[in-house]
């Protein structure tokens, strides 16, 4: 239905009254948006609810999309803001960059994974698991860079940061991920090598 049309064509159709064209955009971005919300919210049911809310908000304010940035960048900005509002409402503690508690959490989760017999997990699953154990802003920046194919400039725009700050945050997130993998998935990493 929407395979041959680019984002701007679909948006133009929606703005001209063809609201079914929006299904094309939802279908195109649902996995990206859901992955990002899942990384931030850390719960599947809630992530799906937030992702749905993101697409509804994007539809409602579609006339505000000026087209000077990619639609995906604009959409991920809504994801970031919606997730922050959701987490604030839930009074979840968004841990600060220097918070070390995540490693304690990772310890517990790691024990749980082992008990569940997850030692044989695939490379993909192991990396995904490690990313999900990072704190929300670290896992979000990694997801935006590697999965959602956003440049550092676009990530900076989405997260409301300076480009250099985004660069430093990405570097820190990767360092933490590497440490996490070496500490908690050492066996799996060895098995894979």
């Amino acid at each position: 239905m929407s395979a041959g049309q680019n984002d701007n064509e679909l948006i133009s159709k929606v703005l001209h009254g063809d609201h079914q064209a929006y299904a094309g955009l939802v279908h195109r971005y649902q996995n990206y948006v859901f992955t990002l919300t899942l990384r931030l919210v850390k719960n599947r049911e809630e992530a799906e609810e937030v992702a749905q809310d993101v697409f509804i908000k994007a539809y409602k304010y579609l006339a505000d999309f000026r087209g000077d940035a990619k639609f995906s960048t604009w959409l991920y900005t809504i994801v970031n803001n919606t997730c922050i509002s959701f987490l604030r409402k839930k009074k979840l503690n968004i841990q600060s960059l220097d918070d070390e508690r995540i490693f304690a959490t990772a310890d517990n989760q790691d024990a749980g994974f082992r008990a569940d017999g997850v030692e044989q997990k695939s490379r993909h699953a192991m990396v995904a698991e490690a990313i999900s154990q990072l704190k929300p802003d670290d896992s979000a920046i990694i997801t935006l860079f590697y999965k959602n194919e956003q440049s550092l400039e676009e990530i900076a725009q989405i997260l409301g940061l300076e480009v250099n700050t985004a660069k430093v945050r990405l570097h820190r997130a990767r360092t933490r991920l590497k440490e996490l993998m070496e500490t908690h998935f050492a066996h799996e990493v060895k098995d894979l090598n």
Partner: peptide, 16 residues
């Protein structure tokens, strides 16, 4: 190489 997570099959329908 990590894969994207997918929401439920009804996701697009729910949004629409």
């Amino acid at each position: 190489s990590t894969e994207l997570d997918a929401p439920s099959l009804r996701f697009t329908k729910n949004v629409m």
